[in-house]
Every structure is written in structure tokens, then in C-alpha cells.
């Protein structure tokens, strides 16, 4: 019986070690600890072109992350992309004329949404729509425009 008790203790330690490893993976390695934004509020922004934006991309204000992209839908009538943003509940003082733009982190980095606060007195609420948006920069279009204007200038 004595030997069995020590077996049970080591098995208990083993299970604890396994759970500890999972906990370490959850808290230290993955972004689970940043998942406290579930009770945030949702705001929609309509973009002409979202470039490489994806669900879960960050939403920042002055470079500080204040939420993430929850989902992206295509509006069948306007052919624009409706991006639903999930913003942290603690940042509930965004003016209604806040502008949203899609930027790229670095030259080859991932794309994110940058917000710029406006000057209105009223604040954005759950379900509101951001009116002022600027679409993502598509490199081919920029180069095409540049070449086009260059060609026009030559004539």
C-alpha cells in the first residue's frame, strides 16, 4: 500500500506538471491573456478596399492597440467591405467623427486599422458606423497612377 501511495503522488505531480505546461502555453506563449476584450463594443467601418486586412488584425489609436477586427463582410449593394471592429470597453470616449484608415506595419508587415480621433462631443456607441474611412493603399494602383501621370506629363 505504501508503494502505491508514492505512485499516486508522482502521478499527481505529473498531471500538475502537464497542466502547468498547458497554462504556460496559454498565458505566456499565446494571446489568451489578451482575450479580455470580449465585453468590448462593436463599431462598423465601410472601406472601398481593405487590402490584406484580416479578422483579428489590430485596431490602434495613436499606435496603441485598442481592439481588433472581428469580421469582414462584403456589402452586396455598394460592393464595399464592411469591417466590424471590436473595441475595448475601456476606450469608450471615441468621438463620432473618428476616422479609420488601413495602414501597413513596416514595408512588408501585416495590415492594421489606425483610428484618428475627431472633435465631436458625442461618443461612438455599440453598433455605430465610422463614416470617415480611407482605403488600403494597393501598391500596384499607386505605381499605375504614377506611371499614368508621368505619361500624361510627357505629352
Amino acid at each position: 500500500m505504501r508503494q502505491k501511495k508514492s505512485t499516486e503522488v508522482t502521478v499527481g505531480l505529473f498531471v500538475l506538471l502537464g497542466m502547468g505546461a498547458l497554462f504556460f502555453l496559454a498565458m505566456k506563449v499565446s494571446n489568451l491573456s489578451a482575450f479580455n476584450d470580449e465585453q468590448g463594443y462593436r463599431v462598423t467601418a465601410e472601406f472601398e478596399n481593405i487590402g490584406g486586412l484580416k479578422a483579428r488584425s489590430p485596431v490602434t489609436l495613436a499606435g496603441v492597440r485598442i481592439g481588433r477586427v472581428e469580421r469582414i463582410e462584403l456589402d452586396p449593394e455598394t460592393y464595399n467591405a464592411n469591417v466590424v471592429l471590436n473595441l475595448y470597453a475601456s476606450f469608450d470616449t471615441l468621438p463620432t467623427d473618428t476616422a479609420a484608415s488601413i495602414y501597413t506595419a513596416g514595408l512588408l508587415g501585416e495590415q492594421y486599422i489606425g483610428l484618428e480621433a475627431g472633435a465631436e462631443e458625442e461618443f461612438l456607441k455599440d453598433g455605430d458606423v465610422i463614416e470617415l474611412t480611407q482605403p488600403a493603399l494597393v501598391l500596384e494602383q499607386v505605381i499605375g497612377q504614377f506611371l499614368f501621370s508621368k505619361a500624361e506629363g510627357d505629352e
Binding site: 505529473f14 498531471v15 506538471l17 502537464g18 502547468g20 505546461a21 498547458l22 504556460f24 502555453l25 506563449v29
Partner: peptide
């Protein structure tokens, strides 16, 4: 039961 725990330990120690 054991293998998932072992795999988690493996990943954690590896990191």
C-alpha cells in the same frame, strides 16, 4: 491521458 500532457510539457520546455 498521458500523451497530451507529455506533448504540452515538450512544447513548453522546447520554447
Amino acid at each position: 491521458i498521458s500523451l497530451p500532457f507529455l506533448a504540452a510539457i515538450f512544447s513548453a520546455v522546447g520554447i
